[in-house]
Amino acid sequence: MTEPSAVPADPTNTDAAELTVDDLTVRFEGLAAISGVSLTVERHEVFGLIGPNGAGKTTLVNCLTGFQAPTGGRVLVGRESTVGWSPMQFREMGVARTFQAGRLFKDMSVLENVEVTAVGLGLGRRRAVERGRAILDWVGLAGKTSLRAGALAYTDQRRLAIARAMVLPPAFVLLDEPAAGMSDAECEGLMVLVSSIPRTFVCGVLLIEHNMRVVMGVSHRVHVLDGGKTLAEGTPAEIQRDQAVLAAYLGVEG
């Protein structure tokens, strides 16, 4: 896989330099899924978020994209408070995401999948198709634009999900386990793609991933959650040496 070709970036609706979670708490019927987590994703970095299943990673992403209202604490886009924002507002303000479960528009074509985001954000059809083709080219799906999304191979579905989030380049993109189920070779390609996002699009990446080679390979900083609480945060090298992390998480994962 070669370095992805450059896609000229459209300006986003925000000049926010960071995406911030401040003392966030989420409770489901009394059970805390997240307790007192604070972190900041910078616009020029890949920020890794790891932790065992049920640690609260997806819940955190839901809070950062308007799908889950925090029980306590704040979510800020730049300096702006996001209280009461709908998921649409988050996307309009430049916070995009993918889903752990994929959630493609399966019966629509590959091109239509990305076109939806572009049109949904206000582009005309012609421009939307243009942008859509460019972004599909970037993820390596140029030859498959007219296929049914549901008919794509698993890896290609993962790539399409990223393209759909990136079609009008956001300021931040939150990738929820994009490499789940990929082979090592496929992971390589994905790593190249993900690590090129901050430079190509001036877009910060929050990357949730279980594959340690991927997270440690592309992240500038890594945040570790366990049982809804922050366990550690630091550079990949620091995290790999952290005793608490080794005991609670990496040890288990092997």
Binding site: F67, M88, R103, L104, F105, D107, E115, V116, G120, R125
Partner: peptide, 23 residues
């Protein structure tokens, strides 16, 4: 039309459509 496209997206996956900015 663009509205037909967006509406079909909500039919396919309402959650993902929201994340794509679709009202």
């Amino acid at each position: 039309s663009r509205y037909g496209l967006l509406l079909r997206a909500t039919r396919e996956d309402g959650v993902a459509a929201k994340a794509s900015g679709v009202h």
